[in-house]
Amino acid sequence: MVDDQGGKGDKIPFMQQLLDNPFLLLCIGIVMPTVFYLIWGIMEVISIPLAN
């Protein structure tokens, strides 16, 4: 097995810390689509002018 986690005492890289934290990933996984899909989409619908 190729151990690419680093030895004991090595500083854990940021990406490794991110990937090892399921709750941080959960936050990111909810925020990204909420902002770029839901909120942006809802704002687009709201900004459609009403017919007179």
Partner: peptide
């Protein structure tokens, strides 16, 4: 990292 790309971007394909 590929799974992370799913977490970040997959739902936007909706």
């Amino acid at each position: 990292t590929a799974f992370l790309l799913y977490i970040l971007f997959l739902q936007l394909g909706s």
